[in-house]
Computed example of a mutant assay.
Amino acid sequence: MRSVFVFPAGERAETAASLDRHLPQQRDPWTLDGNVYIEIDDQRAGSLFADWDPDEVAVLEATLGHRPTWAVQIDISGRIDGTAEVHLMVALLLRHGGVAIDDYSAHPWTLLEIESGTVIDGLCFFDFRTYHELRREH
């Protein structure tokens, strides 16, 4: 399972309502095509930053100007490529601002960077193919 954490601008309730509109009649988790699972994670549950490197959290805080208390976690099954689905969900969630972080880099990606295919440290957003190629080379 691969994961993307999305930190949308705005309120948690607005994000949940948007997910309810776009993925009706499901919640906890919301699902897309049966292979993408979406839920809201928060610090109250104690798991949001539980396995994050402190430096990654610091970069996120510096980018946003505060430490987020909640995020949308998107888990993508290894049975599918998932790139189109992740890009669809991230575009929905970041349309009013915010950032997303994938499993492959610690960079907080803006929607503009994601949609333009920006390359940072040799990787685009959710670039699992290049990430695995680079790891094989080293």
Rank of each mutant, 00 (worst) to 15 (best):
R2H: 12
S3L: 09
V4G: 02
F7T: 03
P8S: 09
P8I: 05
A13C: 04
T15V: 15
A16I: 12
A17D: 14
S18Q: 13
D20P: 01
P24R: 09
W30G: 02
D33Y: 08
G34A: 11
G34S: 11
Y37H: 12
D42M: 07
D42Q: 08
S47V: 13
F49H: 05
A50S: 14
A50L: 14
A50K: 14
A50C: 05
D53Q: 12
V57Q: 12
L60T: 03
L60K: 01
L60D: 01
A62V: 05
T63F: 01
L64N: 05
L64S: 05
G65V: 09
G65Y: 10
H66R: 14
R67V: 11
P68D: 08
A71T: 04
A71W: 00
Q73T: 11
I74F: 04
I74V: 15
D75H: 05
S77K: 08
G78A: 13
I80N: 09
D81Y: 06
G82N: 08
T83H: 11
A84K: 13
V86W: 01
V90W: 01
V90N: 03
L92Q: 12
A100Y: 03
I101W: 00
I101M: 14
Y104W: 13
Y104A: 04
A106Y: 06
H107G: 01
T110P: 07
T110K: 07
L111N: 05
L112P: 01
V119F: 06
V119Y: 06
I120E: 11
G122T: 06
G122F: 05
L123E: 04
C124A: 15
F125I: 06
D127Y: 03
F128T: 02
Y131A: 14
E133A: 14
H138E: 12
